[in-house]
């Protein structure tokens, strides 16, 4: 019985995904309701005048509550962008048939850029400084998806 023991590795998969239900809080709640009316709402810091979209409560720089609501957009300027040749699904990289355009857009009246998809244009035309306009889902679905994507202005 004094055989040298073989070291065994056992493998297991746990065939589950756990669901979490997150309360969005009053800021995102009001933002989503605004999207249903084709309005993009933001909050403003009373001290540094930062205008945050999506809206949030705290300005960490000034330690103030951002309690002033303002409407921003629907047009804005591309600040930064990337052309995706892949998508990442559940952590795995998959090739895309046609590239997807992703941009950081500073909406008119906002100071914090919003990450969004840009559609309806050639990847090579996507540039910094390009003016784009929000496209809303119609009819509205009462969710964050109501801000569907952006398109080039004109």
């Amino acid at each position: 019985m004094a055989d040298k023991l073989e070291r065994v590795v056992v493998e297991a998969q746990v065939p589950l995904d756990y669901t979490y239900n997150y309360r969005v809080g009053p800021y995102i709640e009001r933002y989503i309701k605004g999207l249903g009316d084709k309005k993009i709402l933001a909050t403003k810091c009373p001290q540094c005048s930062k205008v945050a979209v999506p809206p949030r409560k705290e300005c960490g720089v000034c330690n103030k509550i951002m309690d002033e609501w303002v409407e921003v957009g629907p047009e804005g300027v591309v600040d930064n962008y990337t052309v995706g040749h892949v998508k990442i699904e559940k952590g795995l990289v998959e090739n895309l048939e046609s590239p997807a355009l992703l941009a950081m857009i500073t909406l008119d009246g906002a100071t914090v850029p919003l990450l969004a998809e840009v559609k309806g244009m050639a990847p090579t035309d996507l540039k910094k400084g390009l003016r784009v306009k929000a496209v809303f889902t119609d009819p509205a679905e009462d969710s964050l998806a109501d801000l569907s994507h952006f398109e080039q202005v004109g």
Binding site: R23, G25, P26, K57, E58
Partner: peptide, 12 residues
């Protein structure tokens, strides 16, 4: 259940 605030709002 805190139904009125999200996680970070509660922490704050």
């Amino acid at each position: 259940k805190r139904k009125d605030v999200n996680i970070v709002e509660m922490m704050s």
